[in-house]
């Protein structure tokens, strides 16, 4: 059993509660333990740094300093939380002046910036591992064609090495491949969904998210898969934003794992775009497509 300090962020407690449930179910299958950070607060997401950058850092530093006392790596499943945590962590470690200023504001809490911050792709790749993922498959996903949608802020982080290529990431493709799903190569991996403009400029989100949906349909996909709760929501509310055309279900990365492990989705009822069609493609055959067999067949 390996343990991580879990920083849910606001989304995983409200609009994407089912993402948390899904993560917990999948992680426990791989013996990854989560210890929720006590009394965590919002990371400030896209709003804080626009209003006041020092406050944005201090908000994140508050959580980081609480997590530093725990001594486990910090796991942030939300892309915005991960992005902000990563940036502040690095900045505070490198910039003593900023660190002192932020720590003075957060007194008595103290952040050193020494924490390891991880997203869901990293955790699944490193802690579960492609081989163990493939071995544990209990349902055949080969009939399900998915497009991996990373979203903006997971890898686009300035001034630091990121866990994957900033503009053409492949780590989630590998994970999806390991679950046995058919993964399509597509050009919209990193296209912006409209982010936080959903309320202030609905037309922008509708246009951008709609073109992502259109491209996924053109690729012949059955579902879009993303690790980011904001991307998931923006795409999932497309029917409400005024899109009349066909929509594909938008699944969280952990939900594909749920399908591969348990053959069902615990949060199926929380999806606005129905997921039934996609689930149907999964349950038809009871696994046999194991790692060894695929290796023997030369599929990899």
């Amino acid at each position: 059993m390996r343990t991580l300090t879990y920083y849910p962020g606001c989304s995983l407690k409200t609009s994407s509660k089912f993402y948390e449930t899904s993560i917990r179910e999948v992680f426990s299958a791989y013996d990854i333990g989560l210890k929720e950070l006590d009394d965590w607060s919002c990371c400030g997401a896209s709003a804080a740094h626009t209003i006041n950058e020092t406050i944005a850092h201090a908000l994140v530093a508050r959580n980081l300093s609480l997590a530093e006392q725990e001594n486990y790596p910090l796991f942030a499943p939300c892309s915005a939380c991960y992005n902000r945590s990563k940036i502040t962590n690095e900045r505070l470690r490198a910039d003593k002046e900023l660190r002192d200023e932020v720590n003075r504001a957060n007194e008595p809490l103290k952040c050193l910036g020494t924490l390891e911050v991880k997203n869901i792709i990293e955790v699944l790749s490193e802690y579960a591992g492609v081989e163990r993922i493939a071995r544990k498959i209990a349902y055949d996903l080969s009939g399900l064609k998915v497009v991996p949608y990373y979203g903006c802020v997971l890898t686009r982080i300035m001034n630091m090495e990121t866990f994957d290529d900033k503009e053409n990431p492949t780590s989630m493709d590998t994970l999806l491949w390991a679950t046995g799903a058919e993964v399509a190569e597509w050009p919209f991996k990193m296209e912006c969904c409209g982010a936080s403009k959903t309320l202030t400029n609905k037309e922008t989100t509708l246009r951008l998210s709609s073109s992502i949906m259109d491209m996924a349909i053109t690729m012949g996909a059955d579902a879009i898969v993303t690790p980011c709760p904001l991307c998931q929501l923006n795409l999932d509310i497309l029917p409400y934003l005024g899109r009349g055309a066909r929509n594909l279900p938008v699944l969280f990365l952990s939900e594909i794992f749920e399908l591969a492990l348990f053959g069902k989705l615990s949060g199926a009822g929380s999806h606005i775009i129905p997921v039934d069609e996609a689930i149907k493609k999964v349950i038809k055959v009871k696994t046999i497509n194991t790692y060894e067999q695929r290796k023997n067949n030369g599929d990899d």
Partner: peptide
């Protein structure tokens, strides 16, 4: 003014509750 206004309401909520009250 919309973007700033929304971001400010966002921050007001965080300041008040510690977490965003959507």
């Amino acid at each position: 003014t919309d973007t700033w206004k929304f971001d400010q309401y966002f921050m007001d909520s965080v300041k008040k509750h510690g977490r965003l009250h959507e």
